[in-house]
Design a protein around this nucleic acid. Structure first.
Lengths: 343, 343
DNA sequence: TTGAAAGCGCTAACAC
DNA sequence: GTGTTAGCGCTTTCAA
């Protein structure tokens, strides 16, 4: 309705709204924030004025005094299928509360990641979500002092911030249980070698779960751990390592879907396939894993549900909660075509 | 160095810096912005003070007067392999200029997408990138009046904003040329039906390129167009449509990788495979397309290079350019395992 | 070349 | 319940 010429015109401010409604700016502000201390009639009048003028609160000005209504998500790689589920879940709880979501891909180096975090703090974001951060607990705690923080997929438990994580230990166990049930005994686990010894990282918990389940089945002597990295090329390399083994496994838990895909690629190019060469299990239930030609048996982490939890926890933090909460979700095995009964 | 207790302490402001350096805040501001009118000696002194105090400019305050040094990227779905390349390229040019990058996933509905755009404007971002926006040219022009804008993967050419796009028409042509060279004559193209008639959308250009190339080869009577949608399920449906054809094609250009993957899944589950059932080509050169079990022949759009172009154009716009620029990049065929010589 | 001071739009303390 | 006003940290005249 209020189209005008091509001229960029002055922003409508809260002062305009107040004037138009015949009230003070303070009152208009109260209505805007749904704050206590405004009569019903005033509330209605101000809201009408806002509508009529097409008023939109100006972020920087709000940021200078109070909230910006923005939540930042720091993530290494935007191309992570799990992330998309997480942000969907997160959006679904925070957008109705009129928070906006900003994702910043920060790469796999700790330094740029810290820079991104600082930038979000500098921009006065109201809360921060870090997904699988490349930092130690002390560094994360430093950040939590500056801004409400929820950490996803990281197992450090501090009183300074909240965490939401799947039970990675259990996830690895159910994989082993499934394989043992299919008759496998000699089973390999592909480890992300960088994470060795850092108990806050998911790979450590998955490794521990793997070893625990193997010994629970009396198979500790049959357990093989392959050191590689959790990416596509790491998967290819892991496949070569497995092929070079004297007494190879009949099943492999790749630790992550992307690793399993790398292994499949390598096998495929060598004229072999899965589960003929060996049974193979991933972890993440990424969208790719469900594709027809792939059909990877994997573990689902309920990313959407995690995103919702993250949203609730973060909003509580922003609104003042100070005790930490640490939510753990139960992972679920997704059986598809890459695991077969041993023959 | 300057760690203190757990107390959240007051932010270091430009006033602190100015005091510490024994200059006025105006001068400190000039140094901060690399603005004209500060002597070398003052510049040095102020910069030293900033270092010593660990000063970080406060976003909202800057935003109230000038730039926020933030660039927003609006995208339907964060889980788009092309996006990751694009943001990598974009980051590589804007981060050194101390702009920060914020990506906001807005979903596949026009309304939430507009809301995200408005939020970015409200937060006084310095520039905006829209990837394959779900809007018409008029709506996009409205946005361009409010904020410097570069549009990616959208073929409208306005004087109000810049665009960066691959030559989709050419991309579809090289696919047809490749298939014809392999001996195919009856060839199908899967169309994203929503985009029919909207000449600003990539699918229209790809369709036109397909038809152009087919008639160039004298095969207009052999061209089949399948109406579906460009997502995984749309691919599955397209595969069923192809299967139901009386005189089926020997090759299919799926229009997008994700569609090809859906088709492959459907075929696979029906016990068929590619290229045995028919040759299949995607579009995007997504990471998934290169995986061993997939090895999809596809078209590469040079996402990283596009991101860099976007960055340069946007920074130029922010710095005052007003004439529009429309960059077109040449796509490249990537031949892999899903296309075969006809037997 | 440098500095003093006004003011961006909003919130919060306090007065009425 | 409502209005007045100071001030957040920065940039930008404009005067010195």
């Amino acid at each position: 309705m209020s189209e005008t010429s091509g001229q960029r015109r002055r922003r409508i401010t809260i002062v305009d709204v107040a004037k138009h409604a015949g009230v003070s700016t303070a009152s208009a502000s109260k209505v805007l924030r749904n704050a206590y201390g405004a009569s019903e009639s005033m509330r209605a009048r101000v809201q009408e004025a806002m509508e009529e003028l097409g008023y939109r609160p100006y972020g920087p000005a709000r940021g200078m005094r109070g909230r910006t209504f923005t939540i930042g998500v720091v993530v290494s790689d935007i191309e992570n299928p799990f992330l998309s589920l997480l942000t969907d879940g997160l959006s679904s709880v925070i957008r109705p509360l009129s928070y906006e979501l900003f994702v910043s891909p920060s790469g796999f180096q700790p330094l740029p990641q810290k820079a991104v975090v600082e930038a979000m703090i500098d921009h006065q974001m109201d809360g921060l979500v870090m997904v699988a951060p490349l930092m130690n607990a002390a560094e994360i705690e430093q950040i939590a002092m500056a801004i409400p923080l929820v950490v996803v997929g990281h197992h450090s438990r501090s009183h300074a911030f909240d965490t939401v994580a799947a039970d990675d230990n259990l996830g690895a166990q159910i994989v082993v249980d499934h394989l043992v049930e299919l008759g496998h005994r000699r089973i390999a686990f592909v480890m992300h070698a960088d994470g060795r010894g850092d108990n806050s990282r998911p790979e450590c918990h998955r490794l521990q779960g793997f070893e625990l389940a193997m010994s629970r089945h009396g198979l500790e002597r049959e357990a093989i751990v392959i050191d590689s990295r959790w990416n596509l090329d790491g998967g290819r390399e892991a496949a070569r390592q497995v092929a070079a083994l004297n007494s190879p496994p009949t099943a492999v838990h790749a630790g992550a879907d992307i690793v399993a895909l790398g292994m499949m690629s390598e096998l495929w190019e060598g004229g072999q396939s899965v589960p003929q060469a060996y049974s193979l299990v991933g972890y993440d239930n990424s969208r790719t894993s469900s594709l027809g030609p792939i059909r990877l048996t994997t573990v689902d982490q309920a990313g959407m549900e995690m995103g919702k939890r993250v949203g609730h926890l973060l909003v509580e933090r922003i609104e003042g909660r100070t005790e930490a909460r640490h939510d753990v979700l139960e992972p679920q095995l997704v059986i598809r075509g890459t695991t077969a009964r041993i023959t």
